[in-house]
Design a protein around this nucleic acid. Structure first.
Length: 227
DNA sequence: CCCTGATTCGC
DNA sequence: GCGAATCAGG
């Protein structure tokens, strides 16, 4: 496949939106993860915090290549790389879901249902929703399972390039990028989330036990692209 | 081993 | 410019 403008646009959008290279490659189709990464770098996009690592420290040791080319092709002394690893603003972290940690030093009493963080959001995945008014009736310490972004999540964080996305509107993608009818949800977001209430329910799901994963949750797209 | 991104280097 | 091979790391 070749890198058409459209494909590059999709790559950029998804890369910047936090999609993993694998996801991007899968979405684009016809390219490998490596191809996506390579292209991303060539495009000048670079190092995003890897979803899997918090602190990415890479020391490229001058690796001796697999002894196959004794020929010294190019003596490329690499100049000291600028240490500037400007940490990009971390995207909205996990919502302030109730943490099981008894973070309530104010009361020595075992009654810990006193000072829990107020949660104002919807909890499709099972996490709490609490308005300022409702104080703490039934706040089960029941820690919602770790929230994980659903598959589509990344592919959407587009800027306003394609549409008039803003922090106020739901960024849930409808359709596939590049397709004529591709658009975003666009309704008012669930406060603190990039999506509307409805799509938050899709984007954030309770992490199920290993064994009990449901493979076919509703994909945001029409489903896997047919190739 | 799985995954991730980063880098290299032949093409 | 492209991307497979490879590396480094969680």
């Amino acid at each position: 496949m070749s890198w058409t403008d459209e494909r590059i646009a999709t790559l950029k959008k998804m890369w910047e939106g936090g999609s993993t290279a694998s996801q991007i490659a899968d979405e684009l189709g016809g390219v490998s993860r490596n191809a996506v990464i390579g292209k991303a770098h060539r495009l000048g996009l670079k190092s995003r915090p890897s979803p899997v690592k918090a602190a990415e420290k890479k020391k490229v040791v001058p690796k001796p290549k697999p002894a196959s080319k004794p020929v010294a092709k190019k003596v490329a002394p690499r100049p000291a790389p600028a240490p500037a690893t400007a940490a990009p603003a971390a995207p909205a972290a996990a919502p302030p879901a109730a943490r099981p940690d008894s973070n309530n030093p104010s009361q020595p009493m075992p009654n810990r249902s006193t000072d829990l963080p107020k949660i104002v959001s919807v909890g499709p995945g099972g996490f709490l929703r609490q308005g300022p008014g409702d104080q703490q009736p039934p706040i089960p310490p029941a820690p919602p399972r770790r929230l994980v972004p659903a598959k589509p999540d990344p592919s959407i964080a587009d800027k306003t390039s394609l549409l008039d996305l803003s922090d106020k509107v739901c960024r849930w993608p409808m359709g596939h990028p590049g397709e004529p009818d591709f658009h975003f949800c666009g309704v008012a977001v669930n406060p603190g989330f990039p999506y509307c209430v409805e799509h938050c329910g899709r984007a954030y799901q309770a992490q199920l036990p290993r064994g009990a994963r449901r493979p076919p949750p509703p994909l945001p797209f029409g489903g896997p692209r047919v190739r």
